[in-house]
Simulated assay, not measured.
Amino acid sequence: MKKIIVVTLILLGGFSAKAQNLDTFFKQADFFFKANVLNGKVAYDAIKKDRSTLDEVLKIAEGITVSKSDAKNYQAFWINAYNLSVIKGLVDNYPTKSPLDDKGFFDKIKHNLGGKSIVLNDIENKLLRAQFKDPRFHFVLVCGAVGCPPLIDEAYLPIALETQLQKQAKLAFNGDYFIKVNAKKKRVEGSKILEWYKEDFTMNGTTEIEYINTFRTEKIPTDYKITYFEYDWRINKQ
């Protein structure tokens, strides 16, 4: 009986430590974003001068393990880890004009996160998109460029994640930075993200316009044609 109690206490202690580490990560990430993001733009100059807070939260992220079955914690962790690692990559090479100026930024440079050594593309495509089939990830994963959806000034949190995902998708499709509706020409101009990841926005037999309309206040006629404007790869700095 004593052995069972001891093993149980050890297991509970392990779970508690993991929960505390994850909670600490979310709190530190939230603090960092609030201090360094304004209107979707990042204070790279200030972070470059003092990167201690960024390094600290990424150090916490190294030792965290979270299961895919714990979906909200998993998704929130990897979304924040991605966004923080993009900022780290740009700060490492700052001043820089674009993430594309740094060779292998998305597909070669590895980051130590969640017990893995992983590139940014694999976080997006293997850990998130492939596992959950949710196009809304495209509105919260921020690649460090002006053409990306704007970075928010808070962390994505498991308790609020569904609300946050919905909000960012609605902002994208009701504003004019992600799509532009031209009623005279019966056309929608969209971000290249819609073209690059077309399979995400046309799942289950829906068209891109039909998907967009699920978030639109003013619906777009389904006979409108869709084209794509050039992506703005300039760094999203303040």
Results as ranks from 00 to 15, higher is better:
Ser16Gln: 15
Pro135Trp: 01
Tyr224Pro: 01
Ser85Tyr: 04
Tyr177Trp: 12
Arg129Phe: 13
Lys49Phe: 11
Val146Cys: 07
Lys192Asp: 08
Ile226Glu: 13
Ile60Gln: 05
Phe201Glu: 08
Glu210His: 00
Pro135Met: 04
Ser117Asn: 11
Asp176Asn: 14
Cys148Lys: 07
Thr8Asp: 09
Tyr197Gly: 11
Lys133Gln: 10
Cys143Trp: 02
Leu12Phe: 10
Val66Gln: 03
Ala169Ser: 09
Phe201Tyr: 12
Val42Trp: 14
Asn36Ser: 03
Tyr224Trp: 06
Asn21Ile: 03
Asn36Arg: 02
Leu11Cys: 15
Gly115Asp: 02
Cys148Ile: 01
Leu171Lys: 15
Gln168Pro: 02
Leu120Lys: 04
Lys133Phe: 12
Tyr177Pro: 00
Tyr197His: 11
Phe106His: 06
Glu218Met: 12
Phe139Gln: 08
Leu161Lys: 07
Tyr74Gly: 07
Val66Met: 06
Pro221Cys: 13
Phe105Ile: 08
Lys225Val: 07
Lys97Leu: 00
Asn73Ala: 03
Ser16Arg: 15
Asp50Asn: 15
Pro150Met: 14
Glu56His: 13
Val57Glu: 02
Ser16Asn: 14
Glu162Ile: 10
Lys110Pro: 04
Lys88Asn: 01
Ser16Ile: 15
Val140Met: 03
Ile79Ser: 05
Ile109His: 05
Asn80Gln: 08
Thr24Ser: 11
Leu141Asp: 02
Lys167Tyr: 15
Thr24Asp: 12
Gly104Trp: 07
Ile118Leu: 04
Ala29Tyr: 13
Ala19Ile: 00
Asn236Glu: 08
Glu162Tyr: 14
Gly13Cys: 09
Gly115Glu: 02
Asp107Tyr: 07
Asn213Glu: 04
Pro221Arg: 06
Tyr224Cys: 05
Ile152Tyr: 00
Ala76Lys: 05
Ile226Asp: 14
His138Glu: 03
Leu127Ile: 02
Phe201Gly: 06
Ile212Lys: 07
Ile47Trp: 10
Phe77Val: 01
Lys237Glu: 15
Val37Arg: 05
Gln166His: 12
Asn125Ala: 14
Ile235Arg: 01
Asn73Asp: 11
Pro99Ile: 01
